[in-house]
Design a protein around this nucleic acid. Sequence first.
DNA 1: TCCACTATGCTTAGTGA
DNA 2: ATCACTAAGCATAGTGG
Lengths: 95, 95
Amino acid sequence: MRILEMGRGKLIIKFIMKDKVRILTYEKRKKGLIKKAQEFSILCGVETCVILYAPKSEETPAELEIWPPDHAKVMHACHRQIQREAIVRTQKEML
Amino acid sequence: MRILEMGRGKLIIKFIMKDKVRILTYEKRKKGLIKKAQEFSILCGVETCVILYAPKSEETPAELEIWPPDHAKVMHACHRQIQREAIVRTQKEML
DNA sequence: TCCACTATGCTTAGTGA
DNA sequence: ATCACTAAGCATAGTGG
């Protein structure tokens, strides 16, 4: 344990170039983000969805991650979103 | 400033009954959640979407909030999600 | 590789302006 | 009614096993 190097310093938000570090950060922060979404959903009584596209590395293809695990809820949210977009589009076309 | 009551205690994740407190928490945590999603997206180079349905109070109807503000990106994510669900459904039906 | 640890920095509940 | 402040609690980068 090296006491002098325990600090982290202020984190700069910038794409992490090193594959291994990025994948590790991805796993950690994905967990944190979903936890936050879940807490938010419960505390405020709000339907919440998180959709992630995760190109993990050069070898593995893009991977999809969604929350909540109940896909039906996400589908519902997606459909509502698409309906809403369609309505907005129609309204614009009518101008 | 009452020093003795400055503490918060451990937060219990449970629906906030008081309308005003819930709305305040909603606004604060929505901001936090979106910031996290944005950081995550940049750090890991990952497409990320957050969709919230916000029934703010008895008076106001359900309100939709999405991130990123570029709806086209969210639409793209939604469509990919729906396509994926359709593929999964088809695969199940073929069994 | 993946999980555990922990000091640091970040988020936010409670509060006051 | 917002908005700002701040300490407590939380998330997590770096590290070790």
